[in-house]
């Protein structure tokens, strides 16, 4: 049995060392940045799916809203991080609160379909915003300014900022799931009727968790906009929500660092396959099917069985 911190420390350690070990070249660094940003969003989704049992198929919407908040503020000439990031987070949280208020009233498969539908709503809305590029997307002239500086343009700074945020989110997520609140969430996943018989209404707990995951997704979206310096409706396409769900499962659902591992594996795999053949999805798709069918416990499960 591995020590319980061995795997997460290895993952975060590798990410911390990567720029120093020759992965500092432009492309691989931005690849890692993308993986960490997706990992941040996947962490929130992992709390929802693995913790609260809420399988959301619309999580990319929170990314999109966070990213479009950056775009809209940019178009209005506002690029200060002190305004941009809180706005992204808040906007995504409000969207999650409003859509979650409807979605969580239903359960199980209805929840999956409704979150998917709301994600699609965000997608079509973004595509109809012709002032912000419509279908074609919107190119940011510069990254968000941090205290009036262009620090976010510095790849190294950006890399370690992302890593710090990722570690913070991981720690906070762990605390959350272990707390009283998290205990109620986990019980709601295992048996909602039992929870009610104890005197809890699962609804406010689940709604708050959904809102928090949305907020984290909003932050990730704002960071993604900064990483790519470009935002398009394709960020919100429902396939991106499917990708996020896949990352969570690929890494392993039981523990939060599984989401980070899954995001890393996903991004690297996608990159590797895309270099191999333009029809990489023809390999990726069946792989996904196989993971869903046979890789119970995800990559973490594999690692831990070995250990």
């Amino acid at each position: 049995m591995l020590h319980r911190y061995t795997v997460p420390l290895t993952i975060f350690g590798a990410l911390a060392l990567a720029p120093l070990l020759g992965f500092g070249a432009g492309h691989s660094l931005s690849l890692l940045a993308r993986a960490m940003i997706l990992g941040l969003g996947a962490l929130g989704l992992s709390v929802l799916v693995g913790g609260a049992g809420l399988v959301s198929l619309g999580h990319a919407a929170s990314f999109g809203i966070g990213a479009y908040a950056v775009v809209m503020l940019d178009a209005a000439g506002i690029t200060d991080a002190g305004v941009v990031f809180p706005t992204s987070v808040l906007a995504a949280a409000v969207f999650a609160l409003l859509t979650g208020a409807v979605a969580i009233r239903t359960a199980g498969v209805n929840f999956i379909m409704i979150t998917l539908a709301f994600g699609q709503m965000a997608f079509f809305t973004a595509a109809s915003l012709s002032a912000y590029g419509g279908d074609d997307g919107y190119t940011l002239y510069a990254r968000t300014r941090l205290f009036g500086t262009k620090l976010l343009e510095n790849r190294w700074f950006f890399h370690y900022l992302l890593l710090a945020l990722l570690v913070l989110a991981w720690l906070a997520g762990r605390r959350l799931l272990a707390s009283r609140f998290g205990r109620v969430l986990r019980a709601a996943r295992e048996n909602p009727l039992r929870l009610q018989a104890l005197g809890f209404s699962p609804y406010p707990y689940q709604l708050l968790a959904y809102t928090l995951a949305g907020a984290l997704g909003g932050l990730a979206g704002a960071l993604l906009a900064n990483a790519t310096e470009f935002v398009a409706p394709s960020f919100i396409a429902w396939q991106r929500s499917g990708d996020l769900l896949f990352m969570v499962i690929l890494g392993g659902l039981g523990q939060l660092h599984g989401a980070v591992l899954g995001a890393l594996a996903f991004v690297l795999l996608e990159e590797y396959l895309a270099e191999l053949t333009p029809h990489w999805r023809l390999i990726f798709g069946p792989l996904l099917v196989l993971v869903a069918l046979y890789l119970k416990g995800g990559l973490l499960g594999l690692v831990q069985r070995r250990g």
Binding site: V55, Q239, G242, F246, R281, P286, L288, V289, L293
Partner: peptide
């Protein structure tokens, strides 16, 4: 694919059928 999923939870069903979509969209493209 599908008959291996009936006994599984909705999460596995969503993922596996999502994989089928990716594969077939690409196949159609090819």
């Amino acid at each position: 694919v599908f008959r291996h999923l009936y006994a599984r939870d909705h999460l596995a069903q969503v993922l596996a059928t999502f994989g089928v979509i990716l594969s077939l969209n690409q196949l159609v493209r090819m």
